[in-house]
Computed example of a mutant assay.
Amino acid sequence: MLPWSSPLAGRIENDVIHSELLRDNPLGDPHERPVYVYLPPGYDDSDRRYPVVYVIQGYTGHVTMWFNRRPFARPYPEMADDVFAEGDTPPAILVYVDAWTAFGGSQFVDSPATGRYHSYLCDEVVPWVDARYRTLASPAHRAISGKSSGGYGAMITPMLRPDLFGALATHAGDALFDVCYPSDFPKAARILRDTYEGDYRKFFADVAQRVHGTRDSDMELMEIYGYAAAYSGNEDGTVSLPFDDTGALVPEVWARWLRWDPVRMAAQEEHATTLRDLKAIWIDAGRGDEYYLDLGATAFHRAVAAAGAAADRVHFELFEGRHGNIDYRYPMALKWLCERIAP
């Protein structure tokens, strides 16, 4: 496998969205965000309109990372291009969205502690794309796809905005919060106690004056805080942690997290109705996922079935693998989605 890029059958345009919703966000993160739009082969040769798949990233992901090239692997934009270059998959426009924050991610939700990233995606990015490209601008022809935190965003976004999205693909998405998150809380509490006198402010002061990642615990602490900022951010911009100094759950804060759990959301009638109406739902995860997101995928699949989604509209699969290096799964889901959202 060649270690450098290969030519695409389609093409990618990169641009910048000037977001009013992200302007003056609590973290001072840029409100001008890069966006990459893939146009399939033949786009420039006709006036045809196309379905659209929005592609979102996991925690710590930013949009240019899609083009990172690992040894013996190809980046997803090239693999996605192959799906359409082969000619047997209905063509679609792909939109690679950036929702990075200074905490490493937004979980694609609106939070007073990070910013309005859900609204940014739905109310700014989608209209921006529809205004500039020949899209089929309806939920029946619009899907969202992602892995890990991106898989989480892919699960909740159609439930929250069925007026925009009619299909989804989630790869090892955050779900079944009771299982995937709490085991990390005692670890974080211990690190905070032993290194930062139990104070997250001292962690941020420390990491601000050195290279992030030079302590093994940096990512563990940042990730937990990033989730808390999304799920339990307060109106004054502060963040409530879901655990105390012993690592035990703080019930009132944990309850706020659970309201964002896709499994619990799917059981609510308004969201169950949406899931029943979606054209396509792809759910997968590696059997050895370190964060137990295979169990989350199983629980979400059961919730989707309980909601009444037709079996022929749902693909569920546990495969041999862990949480990382599962990029090869994305083109499978892309092909399956495009076959179902095509006109």
Results as ranks from 00 to 15, higher is better:
D15V: 05
P40D: 04
Y54N: 05
T89V: 14
A73S: 14
P139N: 12
R142P: 08
S111G: 13
W66V: 09
P41N: 02
H62S: 09
H18Y: 15
H62T: 08
A80L: 06
H62D: 09
E86M: 14
S119Q: 02
P77K: 05
L39F: 01
D29G: 12
V16E: 14
Y38L: 04
Y38A: 02
Y133T: 03
T64Q: 12
Y43T: 11
S106V: 07
Y59T: 01
W66G: 07
H118L: 06
A80Q: 04
I17W: 04
A113I: 07
G87S: 15
D44V: 03
W128V: 01
G105M: 07
G104Q: 06
Y117V: 02
V37G: 02
F108I: 09
R11N: 06
G105H: 08
T135S: 14
P139K: 12
T101P: 04
R142F: 11
D123V: 00
E86A: 15
F108N: 07
A137K: 00
T64R: 15
N68E: 13
D130V: 07
R23D: 13
H18D: 14
Y96S: 10
Y76I: 11
D47Q: 11
G28F: 14
S19E: 09
G87E: 15
V83F: 03
T135W: 14
V97Q: 03
E78R: 09
P40A: 01
F72S: 13
P91F: 05
N14E: 14
S106W: 08
V35F: 09
Q57R: 14
P75Y: 04
T101A: 04
H31K: 12
F72M: 15
Q107H: 05
Y50R: 02
P75A: 06
N68F: 11
D45K: 11
S111K: 09
G28R: 12
A143R: 00
M65R: 15
V37N: 01
P90D: 06
Y54S: 03
H118E: 15
R70W: 12
W100C: 12
V97K: 01
R11W: 12
R134F: 08
